[in-house]
């Protein structure tokens, strides 16, 4: 029981990170119907940006953990959003209206380019990072087993919930969100009503990238290490999460992320940690066979 509870806490933490990345996949798919395979690497860039941010904070002598986390978060989100904007502008927009496979290939190209760029710029060796947010508390103790929650885990889950609530509000209630949903349903008609479709798509990419930056930062702080290749596996798992929840559906991405986190952590805890990725991707295969639209993937649902 104690062991189960501990694993549940770990799973929710990991699932939050996957969910945040999955939102980026699902929003971009919703609006232009393409899988942005470079999104995992945008997440990786976000991780590196926050690593650099923390080093800068240390250099400038900012030692207060909450202040540093907020500053680094804003820095990473801003920079990574610029990356998201640039990728869309350079690699996808010229191919819009081309055959469906073209932007997909372009996305894979961007993914490889970003990995190699970071490998060259930052080196191939994994970069360690000592988290500013240390410690935690014992939630519950029995049979000589402590169920521990770290402050970092709380930060991750709270931040994720806050961001998801915020984004759901933006999509559901604001003019920008209405505009995104309108573009998603009928781009031509939206432009006839005066909606700047190109700008809306750019903003969607920037929003997805900013969320990926948050995920990248939390991933780096949680695992304490980052290298140029982390985006690949994390990206594919978040993609699995988006498909599991129903690609195009915002709540689906969150649910899918949590489920993938649960499956992965519990598989590692009770069966074998070597095969945890197999379990996660096995779920992808099963979903694609038995429920290709995903758990919440009904087209009428609110999605972007």
């Amino acid at each position: 029981m104690e062991y189960f509870l501990q694993q549940l806490i770990n799973a929710v933490t990991l699932g939050s990170i996957y969910g945040l990345i999955a939102i980026g996949y699902t929003m971009v798919y919703g609006i232009i119907g393409m899988i942005n395979f470079a999104h995992g690497d945008v997440f990786m860039i976000g991780g590196f940006m926050s690593l650099i941010g923390f080093l800068l904070c240390a250099m400038l002598g900012i030692s207060s953990a909450p202040l540093a986390v907020v500053l680094v978060l804003l820095l990473a989100m801003a920079f990574t959003a610029v990356f998201g904007w640039t990728i869309e502008r350079v690699a996808y927009r010229p191919l819009r209206g081309s055959f469906r496979l073209a932007p997909l290939i372009s996305a894979i190209g961007v993914s490889i380019a970003l990995q190699n760029y970071v490998q060259l710029a930052q080196g191939a060796r994994p970069k360690p990072h000592t988290s500013l947010v240390q410690g935690g508390f014992t939630l519950y103790s029995a049979n000589g087993f402590d169920v521990r929650v770290s402050w970092l885990q709380i930060v991750i889950v709270v931040l994720t919930v806050a961001l998801m609530a915020g984004f759901t509000l933006v999509i559901g209630r604001t003019a920008l969100g209405r505009q995104q949903r309108a573009c998603e349903q009928d781009m031509k008609m939206a432009s006839l009503l005066g909606v700047n479709v190109d700008r809306t798509i750019s903003l969607t990419f920037m929003m997805g990238a900013a969320l990926a930056a948050v995920a990248g930062m939390m991933f780096m702080m949680y695992y304490g290490v980052i290298d140029f290749f982390v985006g690949f596996l994390a990206g594919i798992k978040a993609f699995t999460a988006a498909v599991l929840g129903g690609i195009g559906s915002l709540p689906g991405a969150i649910l899918g992320g949590l489920l993938i986190g649960l499956i992965e952590v519990f598989w590692a805890a009770y069966f074998s940690s070597e095969y945890k990725d197999v379990a996660a991707f096995g779920v992808l295969v099963l979903v694609l066979i038995f429920r290709p639209t995903g758990l919440l993937g009904r087209p009428e649902l609110e999605k972007v």
């Binding site: 003019a175 209405r178 505009q179 349903q185 031509k188 008609m189 005066g194 909606v195 087209p299």
Partner: peptide
Amino acid sequence: RLFAGMTVLENLLVAQHNAL
């Protein structure tokens, strides 16, 4: 060509989004 998945009111609000 309405935005079928959005409400009637939202359809009219999208049309006014530039000012918003």
